[in-house]
Computed example of a mutant assay.
Amino acid sequence: MGAYILKRLISAVPVVLGITVIVFVIMSLIPGDPATAILGSYATPENVAKLNRDLGLDRSLPEQYFIWIGNMATGEFGRSYSLNRPVLDEVMERFGATLILAGTALVLCSVLGIVAGVISAARQYGLADKAITFAVLIGISIPSFFLGMMMILLFAVDLRWFPVSGMYLPYGGGDLQDLLWHLAMPAAALAVVATGVVARLSRSAMLEVLRLDFIRTARAKGVGERRVIWGHALRAAMVSIIPVIGVQAGFVLSGAVYIEIVFQWHGIGEMLVNAILKRDILLVQGGVVVVATCYVLFNLVVDVCQSLLDPRVKA
């Protein structure tokens, strides 16, 4: 197992490096001059030239990239122009909020999706299967940001069950109950589409497993149907379900950008949007690299879990 994890870690290095190249190139293609955006009304040619020299923006793109990647390798992500604070400090502070939102949404979509998929497969062509399929198709078809706005209108404005935005009450609060109260709507809105995807693929995986010989053997031996479904069949199907959950982790991380804007959730998605608008290149690059690295590491965890369930994966 240790050799397999080491192999997967080594294979992840070029992926992360490729992401840094893509992010750097895309940011260099954005029109406009960062120095001019930073200086504003003080953007005289002399001041712009001086700031470009100070920031290293007067060098060639390859030089800028290798300086940036070398600094990141030592833990120095640079300093945010717009916030006047270290990039890494801002990214880590915001990333914690995003992990709470995305992690909750991932747990919701995984649990609800698997349960819905198992029930749908166990009751194939029945009323439960048709109802779940109908609900899943509607959920997959609705964009998360649109669903979030509709939830705000219904549950926050009309019914006043949940707060409109933010992570905590502006006065008082600040405890776990307050956080969960604010988290309910954005996490649900973010999890809906991913839940539908997990449910559909869980249903397909379960249907394949339920046709296998060992399931017929278990039933022939008199094993209870509940144990056959939730014990034997689900465990075998998890080999196919776990990679789907890994893919949905990337979906909820990217979808968190829209949800954070809709619900004013102060995470890394909101930070990236503001940084792009202000041409804060180092902050954007640092934020994207941290998110991408987290996603790569999560997929490593998914691969390890899959290999524990099916040793053939390591072959």
Score class of each variant (00 low, 15 high):
297 L>S: 03
279 R>G: 01
300 L>Y: 12
284 V>E: 02
301 V>E: 06
265 W>L: 00
277 L>N: 11
278 K>G: 04
294 C>L: 15
278 K>Y: 07
266 H>N: 11
303 D>T: 12
303 D>N: 15
278 K>C: 00
249 A>R: 06
284 V>S: 01
282 L>W: 04
295 Y>E: 03
276 I>D: 00
289 V>K: 12
286 G>V: 13
243 P>I: 14
284 V>R: 04
262 V>R: 09
237 A>N: 10
245 I>Y: 08
264 Q>A: 13
244 V>T: 04
281 I>Q: 09
273 V>H: 03
300 L>D: 12
237 A>F: 09
274 N>H: 02
304 V>N: 11
251 F>W: 14
244 V>Q: 09
243 P>W: 15
268 I>L: 14
299 N>Q: 02
255 G>D: 11
298 F>H: 06
263 F>W: 04
268 I>M: 08
301 V>M: 03
236 A>W: 15
272 L>P: 00
273 V>A: 03
298 F>K: 03
271 M>V: 03
243 P>D: 14
288 V>E: 05
285 Q>D: 07
258 Y>Q: 00
296 V>Q: 01
290 V>F: 14
258 Y>V: 05
288 V>W: 01
243 P>A: 14
246 G>L: 12
280 D>R: 10
291 V>I: 13
258 Y>W: 06
263 F>C: 05
247 V>Q: 14
303 D>I: 09
295 Y>G: 00
300 L>A: 03
242 I>D: 13
288 V>K: 02
270 E>G: 02
249 A>W: 15
306 Q>N: 12
246 G>W: 13
268 I>P: 00
245 I>D: 07
270 E>A: 05
261 I>C: 00
285 Q>C: 10
259 I>R: 02
260 E>I: 01
261 I>E: 07
263 F>D: 02
267 G>D: 08
243 P>V: 13
285 Q>P: 06
261 I>Y: 01
294 C>M: 15
267 G>K: 06
282 L>G: 02
261 I>Q: 11
246 G>S: 10
288 V>D: 05
277 L>R: 11
304 V>K: 09
252 V>Q: 10
252 V>K: 07
252 V>L: 09
287 G>F: 10
252 V>C: 07
295 Y>Q: 06
290 V>L: 13
297 L>M: 13
283 L>V: 08
263 F>N: 01
268 I>G: 01
267 G>L: 06
255 G>N: 13
238 M>V: 09
299 N>K: 04
238 M>S: 10
241 I>D: 10
264 Q>N: 12
245 I>V: 15
290 V>K: 03
300 L>N: 12
279 R>W: 04
240 S>N: 15
267 G>W: 07
277 L>K: 05
255 G>R: 11
252 V>N: 07
262 V>N: 10
273 V>Y: 02
256 A>S: 15
276 I>V: 03
236 A>K: 13
242 I>K: 11
298 F>G: 00
292 A>N: 10
243 P>M: 14
261 I>N: 08
284 V>W: 02
272 L>N: 02
258 Y>F: 15
242 I>A: 11
265 W>N: 00
291 V>H: 01
245 I>S: 08
288 V>I: 14
296 V>K: 01
251 F>N: 11
261 I>G: 01
290 V>T: 04
281 I>T: 11
274 N>L: 09
281 I>G: 01
